[in-house]
């Protein structure tokens, strides 16, 4: 039986209590993207600026449970200064850790899928690995990431 210590790792509680990059940028000029979890009412509001290729500034607003807010805080630290392409790779790696393999069906018929994948280091984000043992909470962890992806799509 997974215990609470698998879910609420100290580093997660630290990000929850002391969220990084908290706030909101004026939009426009910043891009703005929101994510909602209709089940629990959690919301995340991302505002970010890009120079065309990399995210130059990112602020996190909204409210929610420790998992969604810690995930958002860790995400902000992980993606700041990274290129859009890098961010998409990090997101893919993070979601894979959450047992979400997007495009898996399509990839099976893709010869490239058999090539070894390069594992990206996730740093602090590794602490969220335990969330997988609590399937109800996976949506909490992925909420800010989905908001970021849709924000990047719109920014393009």
């Amino acid at each position: 039986m997974p215990g609470l210590e698998d879910l609420y790792r100290e580093i997660i509680l630290d990000h929850y209590r002391n969220p990084r990059n908290r706030g909101e940028l004026e939009s426009p000029p910043a891009h703005r993207s929101e994510g909602f979890n209709p089940l629990c009412g959690d919301e995340v509001v991302l505002t970010f600026t890009t120079d065309g290729t990399t995210i130059t500034d990112l602020k996190i607003g909204g409210q929610g449970c420790s998992i969604s807010q810690a995930s958002a805080s860790m995400m902000s630290a992980a993606v700041l200064g990274k290129s859009t392409a890098e961010i998409r790779e990090i997101t893919k790696t993070f979601k894979a850790m959450m047992s979400i393999h997007e495009g898996e069906m399509a990839a099976e018929s893709d010869d490239n899928a058999t090539l070894p994948q390069v594992e990206l280091p996730l740093g602090d984000l590794e602490a969220l690995r335990g969330v997988v043992k609590f399937p109800v909470r996976i949506k909490c962890a992925t909420l800010p990431w989905n908001a970021l992806l849709s924000g990047l799509d719109e920014a393009n």
Binding site: L4, C40, G64, C65, S66, I67, F134, R137
Partner: peptide, 9 residues
Amino acid sequence: VHPHDLSQV
């Protein structure tokens, strides 16, 4: 404590 965390504990 967020309700979601409360119910988890």
